[in-house]
């Protein structure tokens, strides 16, 4: 029987079980515990990383950095107060942003361009898209849009938090999100047209 904290994502497929004993062992610097924690968390970490880091070849490097950071700073995590999954997600996202800052310029804001707002009928076909389609679409999204979209829509950051993380103001964050949504609408519509065209 495993005594510890059980963290679940919204879907039951993604169970993260990190025992308190494992956390304590990692705090003590036991390398055996590193492995256990890695195996427990890698799926969750990878799911976040691939959303923020488009280039597949960068994933191993980013994940190494994330786990190095987790193992080094887990002493700051208080098992009695916090949610490990929440804490881990913060570390992962922060590290992904750091990776972007190191690799290129900071979250490149996308220049303002006119995006059609009237393709709302794409919303109706959203159910037709698979996860792979969505991921492919989001991977095509400009860097600045995608980061804001992921942070605010998927990871439920506030504009204040997202702005602080990306080094932009909350107003800029709102503006970027608005454009990201417009971009998504437009491209969902285009994809839908392609789907329809292919079906002809």
């Amino acid at each position: 029987m495993v005594f510890g904290f059980h963290y679940y994502t919204r879907t039951t497929k993604s169970l993260i079980v990190v025992g308190a004993s494992i956390i304590e062992s990692v705090k003590q610097g036991e390398k055996g515990a590193f492995k256990l924690m890695y195996q427990d968390c890698i799926a969750y970490v990878f799911s976040i990383v691939r959303r923020y880091v488009v280039n597949d070849s960068d994933h191993p490097d980013v994940i190494q950095e994330i786990f190095a950071r987790v193992f080094l700073s887990i002493g700051t995590f208080d098992t009695s107060k916090g949610d490990f999954k929440f804490w881990l997600r913060r570390v992962v996202i922060n590290q992904c942003m750091q990776h972007h800052r190191k690799g290129k310029s900071a979250a490149s804001l996308v220049s303002i361009h006119k995006v059609s707002e009237d393709n709302l009928q794409a919303d109706d076909q959203i159910e037709q898209f698979s996860k792979a389609d969505i991921e492919q679409l989001l991977n095509q999204m400009p860097e600045g849009y995608r980061q804001i979209f992921m942070l605010i829509i998927i990871d439920e950051y506030s504009h204040q938090e997202a702005g602080a993380l990306l080094g932009i103001s909350p107003e800029t964050s709102r503006s970027q999100l608005s454009r990201a949504k417009s971009w998504l609408r437009k491209n969902l519509y285009n994809n839908e047209l392609k789907t329809l065209a292919n079906g002809l």
Binding site: K13, F46, P60, D123, I126, I134, I153, I154
Partner: peptide, 22 residues
């Protein structure tokens, strides 16, 4: 639409690449 995207992306069903093993 966002909920749908969120739901899809939150699922951790992607197979792990072999280079990510411990």
């Amino acid at each position: 639409k966002h909920d749908r995207i969120k739901k899809l992306l939150s699922e951790e069903t992607s197979p792990l690449p072999p280079e990510l093993n411990w």
